[in-house]
């Protein structure tokens, strides 16, 4: 059901773990809805220099975490805030329709980690406007069912 790239990221995920003394940590989802992702980041000069994840979730969630952390390492905070789940899916070479929402998790968890960083440092980012890390966590399951 998954393409080779997804399977590769799933079987050999990059950036697994937690950064000690991270500059920002965000989690999204909950084990109750079957998926929970934690992302921790190190920031230097508004640039993400390291990112790690821990994910409770399906293959697609794990692969999305892996590729998303790869993608944001080296990005500026503003670039990372613009990352969409669509880009994550593209980078993975596609996901099955029912699994699209799993990539939303990663993009939300990244935003949450940056939000944490912004809170701690008192910084403001345009890309965080209107973002609420505690918004209904079931959101990502509300996509229409496959036809």
């Amino acid at each position: 059901m998954y393409n080779d790239k997804v399977m590769d990221h799933f079987m050999n995920p990059h950036n697994v773990g937690e950064i000690e003394n991270a500059d920002g940590v965000g989690t999204y989802g909950s084990p109750v809805c079957g998926d929970m992702m934690q992302i921790s980041i190190t920031v230097e000069d508004d640039k993400i220099t390291d990112a790690k994840f821990k994910t409770f979730g399906c293959g697609s969630a794990i692969a999305s975490s892996s590729v998303a952390t790869d993608m944001i390492i080296g990005m500026t905070i503003d670039e990372a805030l613009e990352l969409t789940n669509k880009q994550i899916i593209n980078e993975l070479g596609g996901l099955p329709a029912v699994k699209v929402h799993c990539s939303v998790l990663a993009d939300h968890a990244i935003k949450s980690a940056i939000y944490d960083y912004a809170q701690k440092t008192g910084k403001h980012y345009k890309g965080l406007e209107g973002f609420d890390p505690n918004a209904d966590e079931d959101d990502h399951h509300d996509l229409p069912e496959e036809a």
Binding site: Y2, G34, F56, C58, G59, S60, A61, V98, E146
Partner: peptide
């Protein structure tokens, strides 16, 4: 941990089992 992830790892090792979990099927 989550069922589908286990299932896929097991499958990569030649083992076929099933899950009744959220992430297991359509």
């Amino acid at each position: 941990i989550e069922g589908e992830a286990m299932l896929l790892y097991l499958d990569m090792n030649g083992i076929a089992v099933s899950t009744g979990s959220a992430c297991s099927s359509a």
